[in-house]
Structures are given as structure tokens and as C-alpha cells.
């Protein structure tokens, strides 16, 4: 099911690897599929690889949209 989850990049490691954190769970993953990742970014992690950087601005807008629906309803 293409299980993937957004996790925080906490450390950049050699060989295009990074250490990520998800509520205390830490794992080393590969950054070979993404570009310009920095500590503090959220990445979508799938089978040990970052697939995409998560866009916090877009996430906030989607959540704002959900909240707006509540007011309108």
C-alpha cells in the first residue's frame, strides 16, 4: 500500500543518508531520491527512502481549508 509517513530530518549523514525522527522513533534513511534536504525538513519516508519533501505551507493551507468547512457547515 506504499506505506509512507512524514518524519523530521534530525541529522544529515554521509553517503546521502539522513537520520529521521517520528515521535521518538529514529531511523537512518536514504536521501538519494530527493534534493536540497536540510535538518528540520519533513520528508515522506517509504521503505527507507525519502520520497518527497513535505511542504509545510501547503499542509497548513489544507488544514485551514478543513477548519473553514467546519465554520461554513
Amino acid at each position: 500500500m506504499c506505506l509512507a509517513i512524514p518524519a523530521l530530518v534530525v541529522e544529515l549523514l554521509p553517503a546521502d543518508m539522513a537520520r529521521i525522527d517520528l515521535d521518538g522513533v529514529r531511523k537512518d534513511i536514504s536521501l538519494s531520491l530527493v534534493e536540497d534536504v536540510a535538518v528540520g525538513d519533513y520528508v515522506i519516508v517509504h521503505v527507507g527512502y525519502a520520497l518527497q519533501k513535505l511542504d509545510p505551507q501547503e499542509a497548513a493551507e489544507t488544514l485551514a481549508l478543513f477548519a473553514e468547512l467546519g465554520k461554513a457547515a
Partner: peptide, 12 residues
Amino acid sequence: NPVVAAACEFLG
């Protein structure tokens, strides 16, 4: 526990 929930998410 949140960390248990997170580990479960990681592994489906």
C-alpha cells in the same frame, strides 16, 4: 504510548 504508535506506523 506515542512512541509505540509511531513505531507501528512505520511498519504498518
